[in-house]
Design a protein around this nucleic acid. Structure first.
Lengths: 351, 351
DNA sequence: GTGAAAGCGCTAACAT
DNA sequence: ATGTTAGCGCTTTCAC
């Protein structure tokens, strides 16, 4: 039956009860500030009695640091980015920081989200799988808020970012297909404007070209980064023998590779890898499992998250923001059963 | 090359440029406050010129409202709760509110998260699939911060909550199994301390009892709410014909039902529903798809999210917190292929 | 309708 | 080591 007015005890209340100054209370809750141990104890006790909790909002106002980091998510339909979100939350929580989470519609831009973020004086912004105008990046940087792009980059912008070595990853899948004897190919693209999809496709095509595969032997399908998109694209394109089935299909991400597998199986009764081989990208949990057992390129989420936070350097707020950092982390090919492994490889890609 | 010091223009800067008082600027950005239109325009223009963005932190300090809502997530391994998170974010974003996201280890309690939340003067707390001590609930309520539990309740606490009618859902699955002719059963439990799992199991067992099924004809397995848990439990329990296979298995949530299906298929070459029928709960996207095509109880996420926000009544902060509200939203049985449908039903549960 | 002034709860010099 | 003081950027009476 409590009313929504009261806001709990303040440091002054605690100070009064403990018989010290208000700043002493502040110090008692600021690690590393000088305060007699005896006094600190008395304060902590008084605080406990009053259920005092320091007000971070007030603190932020003076320190200009909120201990809040914004994470902006595009494409929440891809479990990979949810995994990424979780990794950020876990890490940041461990550092005593909070995560303000935003989502933007798939393919939409995050400018509006950024504007809201700015109001909250966040200490940093992480942008995942979403577009961002360079103007917004400057807006953040001008205020001393570092921005880091996750698996994305804006050519010609001074936004920093970390990403998987997507082109190289695309090459890895191409190599795997070639090693398994494939000669005709299809690939299912994600967001056509997204650099991630483009880079993976480019690496894939380049490697194939080096092996003497003509571009005309590679069909392009649009899957829009989602399961249904890939499912439908495959269903439509190969319906009634309308188009000849390739030896191998590269899903630019796992969720689309899964959609492709299901379309093949459900629509045409085709088995992977016996009838068609499939490669993916990301290594999401769903793809690791039976019945998919996807051969894929694993993105090392933890490493990428760590590097992203390094770029933010939240612990040294005074260090100037370094523009234009572009960290690439190599992916690793994980052999499972959606591509027949050459004899020299063992399943599950043990190193 | 910007430094991390500067914080952007303040309302005073804007006021100076526009030749008005600082409070006028404040009013210009507060909908519904009285200000001459001509003046407002001048202010907005000046603001734009300075890239002024109101500081919500400062605003919160005076208004005691942050426009931030905390969402605490347990069990992020279950895609269902990620979907719930997304639903909350979308809705709250639409109201101009931000979401502070926390995760707590599966089965752990959220008391620490709550303590952090209190510092930020959040306007409300949503707790999903995690434990919470009643002491923390009072702490929040004493400060006027409403708490709502999502799919969970704390018996004897005055925390409010919304949940799916879990027991009734369990009954629905039992009915489906019975209609399909099953006479022996297993169920895979989730978090044994969680009310959600308990309620679903109870409803399931009760309905079966009414149909004359002895409790001894129902095997209990522990799946710990996760895919692997269910996969392993099924693999172990039925290994080498150690135990006799039941006619039907109820996965207390979809992700475990999926684990069970895969264990059956991969370990024992068993087909669903031909050899064993399987029922789930939640209706997550992954379970809807081929090859699972899970018959399950759909939780109406949007309705539940809406009711949860109603309980928070964020728009009327002065209205006292109503303790002990317990909203139950009925689930709906969705027929797919993991339970053979009686003739009178059509697949995909068209109403 | 509009400005002046008093805080919101805290931190950070600055004294002592 | 500790108290005093001056803000942080905003909202909100209170006069006018």
């Amino acid at each position: 039956m409590s009313t929504r007015q009261r806001s709990g005890a303040t440091s002054s209340d605690v100070a009064a009860l403990a018989g010290v100054s208000q700043s002493a209370v502040s110090r008692a809750f600021t690690p590393g500030s000088s305060l007699a141990e005896e006094k600190r104890l008395r304060i902590v006790e008084a605080a406990k009695k009053l259920n005092y909790v320091p007000n971070s909002i007030a603190r932020s106002l003076t320190t200009r640091r909120s201990n809040i980091v914004a994470v902006i998510l595009g494409n929440t339909a891809n479990p990979f980015y949810l995994q990424v979100l979780e990794a950020f939350i876990l890490r940041l929580q461990g550092q005593g920081r909070q995560v303000l989470t935003f989502t933007v519609p798939n393919g939409g831009d995050s400018d509006e989200a950024i504007l809201r973020v700015l109001r909250y004086q966040v200490d940093g912004v992480i942008l995942t799988s979403a577009q961002l105008s360079t103007r917004m990046v400057s807006l953040c940087h001008d205020r001393g808020i570092p921005v880091v792009l996750f698996n994305r980059y804006i050519p010609g912008s001074d936004a920093s970012g970390v990403r998987c070595a997507n082109a190289e990853g695309g090459r890895l899948i191409a190599e795997a297909f070639l090693a398994a004897g494939a000669r005709t190919f299809a690939m299912i693209h994600g967001d056509p404007k997204g650099t991630t999809s483009q880079d993976r496709a480019r690496g894939f095509v380049d490697k194939l070209a080096e092996a003497g595969i003509a571009r005309s032997a590679i069909t392009s399908l649009e899957g829009h980064s989602v399961y249904d998109g890939a499912f439908n694209a495959v269903s439509r394109h190969y319906r009634d023998g309308k188009a000849k089935l390739p030896d191998a299909i590269f899903g630019i991400n796992d969720i689309m590779a899964m959609g492709a597998i299901d379309a093949l199986g459900q629509r045409f009764g085709l088995k992977v890898p016996d009838d068609v081989m499939i490669g993916g990208f990301d290594d999401i949990a769903e793809g690791r499992r039976f019945p998919y057992r996807l051969t894929t390129v694993r993105q090392p989420i933890d490493t990428m998250v760590e590097k992203a936070l390094d770029i933010l350097h939240l612990d040294e707020p005074l260090r100037p923001i370094q523009p234009g950092i572009d960290v690439q982390v190599p992916g690793r090919l994980i052999w499972r059963q959606s591509i027949p492994a050459p004899r020299s490889r063992t399943p599950d890609g043990a190193a």
